[in-house]
Each structure stands twice: as C-alpha cells, then as structure tokens.
C-alpha cells in the first residue's frame, strides 16, 4: 500500500521533511513499547505508534521500517523529527485513535507484520 493511500484512508499528513507519498508499505505494526515491535519483522512496514520520541525513530532505523505514523494527532518531538530527517524516514500524523487507524488499514488490505523466527 502506498503512503498516499494510507494518507487518504486516515486523513493523515506528513510532518517530516521526507515526504514521498509513493513509498510502498508491505505490512503494518502498532506498538508503544519498542521491544514489542522488534520481535517482529518490520522491514518495509508501517509502524503505527503513539510514542513521539527519538527512540521510535531509532527503532525504525534498526528494523528497516518504511514509514512511521503517529496516532491521536500527536506530533513527534523536535529531537525525533531531527533524527527522522537525518536517516531520511517519513513521519506521518493522523487525528484517529490507534484502534481506528489499525482497523481502517487492516480492512483496506494492509497485512500484519509476522514474527521473527524464534528458537
């Protein structure tokens, strides 16, 4: 699903300088605790979070996340935005709640991220 489709579905907008709406997200994951997120394969995925600090960006960098979406109209902190620009990752924001955001994305066909193979 392209970011412009995500934006239309959720009435979301870009808050970062990286604002390429043609970026494709393969799957979605929602979490506020970053270690919960890192248990899953987030590569090329959309990370939905209510967490607005630099660590959500670092986590995304490590896991090759394609784009970050803030819910409940939150704005990322200045530090978080600076880091997002540094590593060139798009940051979006929507007024919707996490529940409704995920529901709309899933209903529109965006699949969930799968778990890393654990032993």
């Amino acid at each position: 699903m392209h970011l412009h489709e995500v934006m239309a579905l959720l009435d979301a907008r870009f808050v970062s300088s990286c604002c390429n709406p043609t970026i494709d997200v393969r799957a979605g994951f929602a979490a506020d605790l970053m270690s919960d997120a890192l248990r899953y394969d987030l590569s090329q995925a959309l990370l939905v979070s209510g967490l607005a600090n630099p660590q959500v960006v670092r986590t995304s960098e490590m896991a090759d996340v394609a784009a970050i979406l803030m819910v409940r109209g939150k704005m990322p902190s200045a530090d978080a935005l600076e880091l997002a620009d540094e590593i060139d990752i798009p940051f979006l924001s929507t007024e919707l709640t996490m529940f409704e955001t995920c529901g709309r994305l899933f209903a529109a066909g965006l699949p969930a991220c799968q778990r890393f193979n654990g032993r």
Binding site: D32, L33, M34, S35, D36, L38, R39, S49, L51, N53, Q55, V56, T59, F116, N117, G118, R119
Partner: peptide
C-alpha cells in the same frame, strides 16, 4: 522508562530469538 517506550521485558528475549 516504560513511558519512553522501553522496558517491555522483551529485550533479552528478542536478542535470543534474533
């Protein structure tokens, strides 16, 4: 720490799994 998004109690578990 949890408010910052950490302390989910998954760090070591994730390392072991990854």
């Amino acid at each position: 720490i949890r408010e910052m998004g950490f302390g989910a109690g998954m760090g070591l578990v994730n390392i072991k799994a990854t």
